[in-house]
């Protein structure tokens, strides 16, 4: 009878051990608890990522809308002295452009992330289209005012369309970089 009790005792010990051997667990891979469980710091990191994602999604939609308005503004440039359409489109483009920029500039970025790939050139091109988007409306306003007052515009003021064109080119390229792989 004693040997039978002993046999069952050994059998009971054996069952969980063989199961443990068969079921590989994450700790068997050498993963630490911090690698498999959520910490408060990680919850915070996810919030940052979600805020960033949401702001950049708005940035994308507004950016493409801005590009549409920018194109319309450029196309109506020839009739700028005959109607106010070019001016109104320009004002809408400006408002959209700065709102687009706001969403990009306020999107939080997790620490330690270095820009890589097309995003680098997307950001670099802002150094061209941003000054153009500051100068073009000012020069356009001065040009129209001079024309209305019958005054002659300076050579810089006459560059309004050229500067706007450069800004448009840089902005369109910047948008294309995020859409197509070159």
């Amino acid at each position: 009878m004693l040997w039978l009790t002993h046999f069952f005792f050994v059998l009971l010990c054996l069952i969980p051990l063989t199961n443990a051997y068969a079921d590989i667990e994450l700790k068997d891979l050498g993963l630490t608890k911090s690698e498999t469980t959520l910490t408060p710091k990680q919850v915070e990191e996810q919030k940052i990522l979600e805020t960033r994602h949401s702001k950049l999604k708005t940035h994308e939609v507004l950016g493409l809308t801005t590009l549409g308005f920018m194109t319309a503004t450029l196309l109506t440039g020839g009739s700028a002295l005959d109607s106010n359409m070019h001016m109104y489109l320009g004002m809408a483009t400006g408002a959209l452009y700065y709102t687009t920029a706001y969403y990009s500039l306020t999107a939080p970025k997790p620490p330690g992330i270095k820009d890589r790939g097309n995003i680098v050139w997307h950001k670099r091109l802002a150094w061209i289209h941003f000054p153009a988007m500051v100068l073009a409306p000012i020069l356009g306003y001065i040009y129209k005012k001079n024309e209305d007052d019958g005054k002659k515009s300076s050579s810089l003021v006459k560059q309004h369309s050229a500067i706007a064109g450069v800004g448009f080119g840089a902005f369109a390229l910047s948008a294309a970089l995020m859409t197509i792989d070159f």
């Binding site: 979600e50 960033r52 994602h53 992330i113 097309n118 995003i119």
Partner: peptide, 10 residues
């Protein structure tokens, strides 16, 4: 692209 990687993580 680093920006794409962050989007994926989100």
């Amino acid at each position: 692209d680093s920006n794409r990687d962050l989007n994926l993580q989100t």
